[in-house]
């Protein structure tokens, strides 16, 4: 149902992340003639057989499922590019390589619905899985370095699905450190009992900016 993922941790459900990714633009080669589509989400087409056209992923998948087009996999989804990314990913233990924000969802949708349009599909898939693994490992080691002095974590190039998966761990960890490090928390330990209320007013901790 709409809007039903746990609002408390403000988590997006995986299908909601996929929903967002479905708006990414891909190139298709239709095999039918169709007039331009003037949709709420934008204008696409007109479509002519064998002439490439740009449409959102959901539209591409819908046409593909009805056998009306082939999908051109995005340029980053090739063995050559992905091998480069994987190598670079392994070489830089603290950085994430730039990949499309929705690379996991896009590749999953294409594998599910347009496998025959991807050259070396098997290899491409395993490369993407390897890249995911390497990146997740980095996220995990990154989590270990969070401490009471962490007030900002930079995760440049982390993708949407990766964000969604680490969110609960990351937020709870930072939250816990932040809470126990707050001056009021320390103060409260001194005068337990005298005040039952938990003050939520400005508790800005003062700490250095080091952690990245």
């Amino acid at each position: 149902m709409a809007g039903q993922s746990d609002p408390h941790l403000s988590l997006f459900s995986p299908s909601e992340v996929e929903f967002v990714a479905e708006d990414e633009i891909v190139e298709i080669v239709p095999n039918i003639r169709m007039e331009a589509l003037n949709m709420i989400c934008g204008d696409f087409g007109p479509f002519f057989p064998q002439i490439a056209s740009k449409v959102p992923l959901w539209l591409a998948v819908a046409l593909k499922r009805r056998g009306k087009c082939t999908i051109r996999p995005p340029e980053w989804m090739t063995v050559e590019r992905l091998t480069q990314v994987l190598d670079a990913e392994r070489e830089s233990p603290r950085e994430f390589q730039p990949l499309p924000f929705h690379y996991i969802e896009i590749s999953k949708l294409l594998f599910d619905h347009a496998r025959d349009d991807i050259s070396d599909a098997y290899l491409v898939r395993s490369l993407i899985e390897d890249i995911r693994d390497v990146r997740f490992h980095k996220v995990e080691t990154g989590l270990e370095t969070i401490s009471g002095r962490t007030h900002a974590v930079k995760l440049k190039n982390l993708s949407a699905m990766e964000v969604n998966i680490v969110r609960p761990f990351m937020v709870r960890t930072l939250q816990a450190f932040y809470k126990h490090d707050s001056p009021q928390m320390i103060q409260q330990a001194d005068n337990t009992g005298s005040s039952r209320s938990t003050p939520v007013t400005d508790r800005g901790p003062r700490r250095d900016l080091r952690h990245r």
Binding site: A152, L155, K156, L158, V171, R206, L209
Partner: peptide, 16 residues
């Protein structure tokens, strides 16, 4: 509030 924690926010950065 007191300027001890400063981050440089560049376009397309992802932060927590």
């Amino acid at each position: 509030d007191i300027g001890e924690e400063i981050v440089d926010l560049v376009a397309d950065d992802l932060y927590v």
